[in-house]
């Protein structure tokens, strides 16, 4: 097993290397002087010269990449001339809301989608199954922000049960935090639920007719224990896989959801940085989100060995 973990860890290196090259090239592909672009519109010529010196822009491109990567690996993402802060500071200040939103959404989505998928498979061909699958296609099709505004309109404006927008840090009280997390989490969870429910149903259906499930039933086990202990356990690998892959959707959704609900997180930062053409920040955020995605999927791969001991690589 350790061999497998080591191999999987090694396999992430080329992926992250490609991402790094990609993000590095992002700035070089734009027309114009990268130093001037990084410095922003209000920079003096001294600023530009300083940046050019710091990034080694007069050296060969490979050397520039090495310098850049070296800084990134030390946690130095450069300076945001738009926000007048280092990019690292900027990101640290924005992590909490995004993390909170992602974690709430993840729990909500998994807790809703897995039972839905299991029930749909269990009641295969009935109106329940068709209903769940219909909702799943629907969830894939309605844009995140339309769901968000519909929920705001219904629950925050018409019914006035919840605050319209905004974020309250966890440190300032759990009630207010949760109140403001409910609508964004539901909004973001919809597409994720659609994805997970669909795979859960497919995966459960595949296992449903296995011999050991028939055996479990034959020995007189009730439906629920059969479903949970025998079916779901054996159907877990594809479900966990898609939860990992779905993190990409989640990250894309975070960007939109934070804009709809005015949550000052990394997603909002991404949009603000793009609008301000603040490239060091854009680069850092893209790198960070991609790294998170790769690491989560690495962890997912590692859980296989626990979920299904037959898997040996």
């Amino acid at each position: 097993m350790f061999g497998y973990i080591a191999r999987r860890l090694l396999a992430t290196i080329p992926v992250m290397a490609v991402v790094a090259v990609l993000v590095f090239m992002l700035l070089r592909l734009t027309a114009g002087d990268p130093a001037a672009i990084i410095a922003g519109d209000n920079a003096t010529s001294q600023d530009v010269a300083a940046i050019r010196e710091k990034l080694g822009l007069d050296r060969p491109i490979v050397e520039q990449f090495v310098i850049w990567l070296g800084r990134i690996l030390q946690g130095d993402f450069g300076e945001s001339f738009f926000f007048k802060k280092t990019v690292a500071e900027l990101i640290v200040g924005r992590v909490e809301p995004t993390l909170a939103l992602a974690v709430c959404t993840l729990f909500l989505a998994v807790a809703t989608a897995v039972p839905l998928g299991v029930i749909a498979a269990w009641k295969r061909g009935t109106w329940i199954d068709r209903g769940v699958m219909g909702l799943s296609v629907f969830g894939f099709s309605v844009p995140v922000f339309v769901i968000g505004y519909a929920l705001i309109y219904l629950f925050a404006i018409e019914l006035a049960w919840l605050p319209v927008q905004g974020y309250q840090p966890l440190a300032e009280g759990f009630g207010g935090f949760l109140e403001r997390m409910v609508l964004p989490s539901i909004t973001l969870a919809v597409i994720y639920v659609a994805l997970i429910a669909r795979i859960t149903r497919a995966s459960v259906l595949e296992v449903m007719n296995a011999d050991y499930v028939r055996t479990a039933r034959a020995k007189g086990l009730g439906e629920l224990p059969v479903l949970v202990r025998h079916v779901l356990r054996n159907a877990a690998v594809p479900i966990v896989t898609v939860i990992g892959l779905g993190v990409a959707l989640l990250i894309g959704g975070v960007v939109v959801t934070e804009s709809v609900f005015s949550i000052p997180g990394l997603g909002r930062l991404t949009v603000d940085a793009v609008l301000a053409r603040d490239y060091p920040t854009v680069q850092a955020v893209v790198l960070l989100f991609s790294a998170v995605y790769v690491v989560i999927n690495l962890l997912v791969d590692l859980t296989y060995t626990f979920l299904d001991p037959r898997i040996r690589y």
């Binding site: 490609v18 991402v19 990609l22 894309g252 960007v255 939109v256 854009v282 989100f289």
Partner: peptide, 23 residues
């Protein structure tokens, strides 16, 4: 395939947003 893996490691909307910012 290594290049494709790398491209797929960047969430699609994020990559699109970053690319749009270039021009």
């Amino acid at each position: 395939m290594r290049i494709m893996d790398g491209l797929m490691a960047v969430p699609a909307i994020l990559l699109a947003i970053a690319l749009v910012s270039l021009s």
